[in-house]
Design a binder for these strands. Structure first.
Lengths: 359, 359
DNA sequence: TTATATTCTGTGTGCGAACACAGTTTGAAA
DNA sequence: TTTCAAACTGTGTTCGCACACAGAATATAA
């Protein structure tokens, strides 16, 4: 009985409850000015008929405009945050006719002060919701305090801060993604194999994401007692010194002759691929993270064996969608959402990219 | 300039072109009865302003009702087609307020006659679109001929028939998924390892899907010259004779002592897991297809190492969505769409399942 | 009882697009 | 010139919902 009744209108409810449409509307929106008798009658019919509003008509009629602000790092073409930007753009298009307007505000991810000043300017516009990439922990906590005072809801993207009242968090299960990388890379490695782990010095704060991946990676090694069987070689790259990094790698390969795999936990594995190509060491297994254009290029060439992706564009998209679901459609949502880990190889990357472009 | 102008209304276009709303509407819908002068003026403004209609208002105003019919095999709980059913259900809910009504018609996948009689009854209702799982090739071709005569658009799900005028096809790139399975299973297998490939006799027609996967699997072996290094053991299971199948497997393990991996190309790898558990052979690597409940159970237990999934529910959902995009929203769509191959392991299955429930 | 505040309820308008319908212009035949 | 259909154009209603406003019913005070 409650199956097909999705076409029940407010008008129908009004007739059945013996009141006017206005009264039904008041009950639906808890706007008061309704006698107990009327309210009960309406509520009863509402339940019996399993009424659900026509969201199209609602958005069309609603005069309320929603102003959402996204606060995340500025980026160059081909960088990680570009995907996030794309996801926000897609959401902006989709929810435009629901009276949602999305404004993007960028800050410098290596300069906490830029975050502070941008966040202050955001507060002044009194947005209806804010999406934050909490790169700077303390500054973000201060910002969300202000948001709380103004009763402005917010969501985290990319990473999150525990014990805060965020609306949603979409992100990676970084520990698991490190663990899986190890599994893909190390299962059935011959004993005595040498594995190179590259880390990169980062200006400013340490990236939590890469650290956690690294922990997951190490956990796999311990759990499978590979400490003794394998020989893990750690090295550190410098940002923006590719000739120096090439040299570091050259030395490692000069001194070690059973290297079978290389891994890095940040998104710039294409640098490694480039250097391995230069060193003619393309037979080692190479694994990395995120579908940057350059990464995909080397994956297709077979120099990178495997990329683990967690669709940053979808993370951004879903974050906006869920805020709409909550504020506009009044639906229940999940607070914490880990994106699936997509394991991409030369063979499935084409379909994957095409599919995601098409959504 | 053409960026923010998505809030342009027909009324605005009318004023700018110096005509009435009705005329703009006639131009938009190619409904004729417009002078060349008016048409040009409107078309010009339309382009300049980058007009895009408010789809909410359109659906609300439109009196047209769309009746879509889905034609696919009936199923028991936990079977493959249940996911497809779920995807159709989700689409039905989402597009209900766009005046789309979805009817599901099931046939017996082992009885071509049941397909014929169901498809005939579908024709009589004169639907606006049909979605077909073309299990029976000849019968399906006959059916789509009738559809063509009535100018009813149709899409394929799960598999497709070449050289037909289908709207979309969402499905698996089965060859690649077989290839990847081999890569996951066989890369860095020690020489001399024995690999067991299980096939299942099928009532009625041969499943094209599993055959193609098998071809992809074999292709990897050839490409990497593993024919000589590995020892592939083929065996055949019977449907609905699990004690017999267990016996087959027992004999294989009695006669061979370096079995390191087992694979099957249909979705019922849980039967293998069950038997391997019974035979206490849980150290071999086991890989299979599709996220049936039972499969997931054994994946979590670690008996199945890896499942490859192509989200049948999303295939159904996207098929409906794209038909709406074409008929209602008049958008461009891709005809052939291969779903990404998701590689699931114990470590990422939880997030994956949770994520897909939430869409 | 009347005046006035308070609580409650119905009606009407608008959102943007679709479409029916009525009204106007044009051009060719009578 | 008149006639009349064909070509063209504008107006008005509708969809389901939100919300403003006016008006009715009831309660309270004078």
């Amino acid at each position: 009985m409650a199956e097909k009744n999705h076409k029940i209108r407010i008008k129908d409810i009004a007739v059945l409850a013996g009141v006017s449409e206005g009264t039904v509307d008041r009950v639906l929106h808890n706007r008061g000015d309704v006698s107990d008798k009327s309210r009960e009658a309406v509520t009863k019919v509402l339940e019996e008929m399993n009424y659900s509003p026509n969201l199209l008509a609602r958005s069309l009629a609603s005069k309320k405009n929603y102003h959402f602000v996204c606060l995340f790092p500025s980026f160059e073409s081909g960088e990680y945050w570009e995907s996030v930007d794309k996801g926000f753009k897609q959401a902006a298009l989709e929810f435009l006719h629901h009276n949602v307007h999305i404004e993007k505000k960028y800050f410098n991810q290596f300069d906490s002060q830029s975050f502070v000043s941008v966040s202050e300017s955001v507060l002044k516009t009194e947005p209806d919701a804010v999406f934050i990439a909490p790169i700077f922990r303390n500054e973000t906590i201060s910002f969300i305090n202000d948001l709380n005072n103004l009763a402005i809801p917010y969501s985290f993207i990319d990473s999150m801060i525990e014990n805060t009242e965020f609306n949603t968090y979409y992100g990676q299960n970084s520990f698991q993604s490190g663990f899986i990388a190890a599994k893909l890379l190390l299962s059935s490695m011959p004993d005595g194999s040498q594995i190179v782990v590259i880390r990169t010095k980062r200006k400013g704060s340490v990236s939590n994401q890469t650290l956690t991946r690294s922990n997951g990676f190490n956990h796999y090694i311990q759990e499978n007692n590979l400490d003794n069987k394998l020989n893990i070689i750690s090295a550190e790259f410098n940002n923006n010194d590719e000739s120096g990094n090439l040299e570091i790698l050259r030395q490692i390969f000069k001194q070690n002759h059973t290297i079978r795999a290389v891994i890095t936990f940040n998104s710039r594995v294409y640098r490694l691929a480039m250097h391995l190509e230069a060193l003619q060491q393309t037979n080692v297994r190479l694994i990395g993270y995120d579908l940057l254009e350059e990464n995909v290029k080397y994956l297709k060439q077979g120099i990178i064996n495997c990329l683990i992706s967690q669709r940053p564009d979808k993370q951004a998209y879903f974050t906006v969608r869920d805020m709409c679901r909550k504020l506009i459609f009044r639906q229940e949502i999940n607070r914490i959402n880990y994106m699936p880990m997509d394991v991409l190889m030369k063979e499935n990357i084409e379909d994957y990219v095409q599919f995601n472009e098409n959504i």
